[in-house]
Amino acid sequence: MSEAVKVSDVGKRYGSFELQGIDFSVRQGFITGLIGPNGSGKSTLIRMMMQMVRPDSGSIELFGHRLAGESAQLRERIGYVSDENYFYDHLTIKRMKKILSPFYGSWDEEKFRGYLERFELSENKKIKELSKGMKMKFSLAVALSHSADLLIMDEPTAGLDPVFRRELLDLLTEEIQDDTRSILFSSHITNDLDRIADYIVFVNKGRLVFDETKDDVLERHVLVKGGKELLDDDVRGLFTGIRETDVGFEGLVSDRAAAQRAFGDLALLERPSLEEIVYFTSKGAAAYV
């Protein structure tokens, strides 16, 4: 399987924050969700793919080309949606488009107009007059209008209402009907875009937790709920993260079979949601309420 993005052993230090030994890929033809709590390094990784940030160590490949000083042309093949409004606030949509469209050889004006209409954006509006959701839609319209092979979206659902979030799912699945295209999105709120994600890359505190198909992730993990008398030091060691209260505990075990052996019928074993996996993993064993 070919890879749209390959991140190999990437490290980066920013003051006290450190990304270390990050390895993952964005497979061609699939949707990959980059998830993790705020401040876990998702945006930095995405900015590295866009060559905004240089890794201190390791390497990044886009479409099989290792990123180096003069890899700028590769960005023509990327539709990028930033997590902030990075357009010029005082310009109208029309003028902003006029500035950026010539940089993309395959800019499709008709497609762009189609998206403006679909997203109900008026091109005479100034960008600073747009709501957060509308800015995101404009950014998306730009990203989708130059036949990009890879769509990279940094927290795209922030500021979007639930109705449009659902519409976004349709839009994105439409994009990958053609199995040569790939999508990477990051999100700290899961149970959102990850409905349609094929692969999940989970980073936490600058480290990679896993890069697996979503189905494997969901099947491998198990949420255990039970009475506190079941917990001893050995049992606690099984948990990736655990939350203990006065009336019992719930915790995440990343090996379903091991949990079944340990608890049998003594505890409640449930399928966790991705959100629960993120929650328990980032809280770790110290989670205590």
Binding site: T173, R195, D198
Partner: peptide, 17 residues
Amino acid sequence: IRQLAKNLQISVITTKR
């Protein structure tokens, strides 16, 4: 496979499986 994944708004890998 891709059409079904789109219609159900689920992962392509799931429908493939």
